[in-house]
Nucleic acid binder design. Structure first.
Lengths: 210, 210
DNA sequence: GTCTATACTACGATAGAC
DNA sequence: GTCTATCGTAGTATAGAC
């Protein structure tokens, strides 16, 4: 009963090669078991994929638990508090992305972003969607802008963080230096500063439209 | 001699399924020819992949030609001019990304970003690398910061644009409305504003470090 | 539950007709 | 240049021993 090992390998292999490209033989071999155990536990290749999606979502929910309230409630009413939570959330994300720990799991999700299957709905109804919707609500409270502007801004803030995961090969070459502790600190500070710059301007424009 | 058709299909299929996952039979069938023509023209699967990389890079170079000088020279000396060029470059990119025209070609590149093969070096020595290095130089001129900060900032600016391509499934759901002409305008204006906010703050901090 | 054995399909490469 | 035919390999699914 090492089904957890099978799921970890599946997330890696499906992420790299996709549902069609990955092979159940390869996954089973890498997990140290026979291919037919996939049929036994998950009913086949597609069942394994669905189980991997569920496993991955549960994993992300656990990782985001410390920074994301479990209920959908309790957006802080004070703009300053909302901004503080935005900074905390983005910092938690970038710190994980820079450590490059779960890059394989991200690959699975990025594939679903660009070739979405029904599985992406599962992610959006899960941890990813909860995080995104909360970020939008926080931006709205922190800046006072309309919902559409808040949504666009939330995506921009997310983008400056996400780029370190999605475009890592480019980032490594552009940076030219290894991402050590000092570099990580510099990136985190820069992102916090950019976030403040964007939200400051947004709040100012809101009070006195240009 | 419809080798161009073969390359277009190859970029799509390799992008979606990867080098291993895509099948030469499938590519040939979608291009309306026999599989053995791949052997004849490109020597095999890997040769087709290499040709697809070259084709894609040439294509990007052509698309970026209007906004990217062919030589590596001539960074404007005036900060205001540099900032203007940054805004133009980012606007050209986001406009392409939002139109969703060449999403399939981006998929190929994103796969190389997250599972880099030797092909990514080809991209970085080509149009992508030239664009990235120029953006860094422009940020440095526009803000006057050190090269490391300029590189980090360039990636942040790139990220807020790139997110609309790499996380499109998420963006669609977060936005909740279709990306029509009005929405595109709003996104472009927001990105231009964010860019100004970030560069303004950077220049200010540079003159009087906090 | 985990394994081996097997049936059937699809893969990449290649040879050769035209 | 483009096609069909074929070979050896690897894929998923399934049945059944233990």
């Amino acid at each position: 009963m090492a089904t957890s090992k099978l799921l970890d390998v599946a997330i890696r292999e499906f992420g790299q090669r996709g549902l069609d490209g990955a092979s159940t033989r390869g996954i089973a071999a890498a997990a140290g078991t026979a291919m037919s155990s996939i049929t036994y536990h998950y009913g086949g290749k597609e069942g394994l994929y669905a189980a991997a999606v569920k496993h991955l979502d549960a994993d992300m929910a656990e990782q985001l638990a410390s920074v994301l309230p479990s209920g959908s409630a309790s957006i802080p009413a004070e703009p300053a508090m909302a901004r503080q939570e935005i900074r905390l959330l983005l910092d938690r994300l970038i710190e994980r992305f820079l450590r490059d720990e779960d890059a394989e799991r991200s690959l699975f999700i990025m594939r679903e972003q660009m070739c979405p299957s029904a599985a992406f709905d599962h992610f959006y109804q899960g941890a990813i969607g909860r995080m995104a919707e909360r970020l939008v609500a926080l931006v709205q409270t922190a800046s006072g802008v309309s919902t559409t502007d808040a949504r666009i801004t939330a995506l921009a803030l997310f983008g400056q963080v996400m780029v370190w995961r999605t475009s890592r090969a480019l980032a490594d070459r552009v940076l030219g230096i290894p991402i050590d502790e000092d570099c990580t600190t510099a990136i985190r500070r820069q992102i916090a500063r950019n976030t403040d710059s964007i939200l400051d301007r947004l709040s100012a424009d809101q009070q006195e439209p240009q």
